[in-house]
Write a protein that binds this DNA or RNA. Structure first.
Lengths: 155, 155
DNA sequence: CTTATTGCAAACGGTTTGCAGGATA
DNA sequence: TATCCTGCAAACCGTTTGCAATAAG
């Protein structure tokens, strides 16, 4: 779950430290961004923001999202489609996904063993792990009894 | 290791089936592509190809790489840098990637422990693992002594 | 001689940047 | 008032497409 209070705090701290200004645009974008649970594409967010503040420019949205990323309250993700998507950073977050090819459901998972092992692999190659991306694709073992069949297959 | 004989065969079969023509350009690109062990970016490959065949257009390289992909002898991969990279398909392949953010080098790895654990994670959620994608990003522990520094850091 | 292919230039889509006017501290 | 921020337009970058000329079958 998104902890918008924590995000607001962290953003405020970052802005103060960098002597940035709190503008109407940034407030609105923040508001809407924190309401987005999933990975929002920029144009998607822009559309939602424009519904509230019609005159806003896409440049501002791009720049603000970049600001959020630098402030540590957003993560940038690029999928195969060439678009950049952003997701709110959550406390104790993990971004490993288990995608069901049968029903489309996306589970999030975290496995300490895998986490630890990744760092080892990096080290074995002379690197310090900074981040990772791990997606597992699978099929329902029991399609009939699948609890997620009716859910919206996240894009 | 790249099995260029097998690749040539598979490509030939695909071309025959689709009534495509064997051109000088395609031969040269194939030659050079099979010599590339790692993940080549298009402009990288273009440079190598142009060293052999100066007049060749980048359009041709793009189209040929797409052809290779359709023929099943190349894999298209997009990492976080926005460039599309291609790698020769190998028999029984399966590559996880370790990307160095300092020098740009891309290592391939396979870890049985992680492999096994992934299947477990899937099963724990009621899925049978079909495939996965796993990229680890890191930084050189010793940037000074990095063996890969001289390589073109795929931006 | 028919059809596929090439290479150029121009189009493209997503993103970034320069700049003058406007808002914030 | 001194900055910082905005929004526009234009630049940009990697990639794709239209097209007339060219090469392969």
């Amino acid at each position: 779950m998104v902890d918008s209070a924590w995000m607001a705090e962290r953003l405020a701290a970052y802005m103060k430290q960098h002597r940035l200004k709190e503008t109407r645009q940034r407030k609105v974008i923040f508001e809407i961004f924190t309401e987005c649970e999933d990975h929002v594409a920029v144009d998607e967010l822009l559309a939602r923001v424009q519904a509230v503040m019609p005159g806003i420019g896409y440049t501002t949205v791009y720049r603000t999202l970049k600001l959020f990323t630098e402030a540590g309250i957003a993560h940038e993700r690029r999928f195969q489609d060439g678009q950049t998507r952003y997701e709110p950073v959550e406390a104790g977050e993990h971004h490993d996904h288990l995608i069901c090819l049968t029903c489309g459901h996306i589970f999030e998972f975290e496995d300490e063993l895998i986490e630890a092992r990744q760092a080892d692999v990096a080290e074995a190659h002379g690197l310090r792990m900074v981040s990772h991306r791990h997606d597992i694709y699978g099929e329902c073992l029991d399609p009939e009894g699948c609890v997620h069949r009716r859910e919206d297959p996240g894009r």
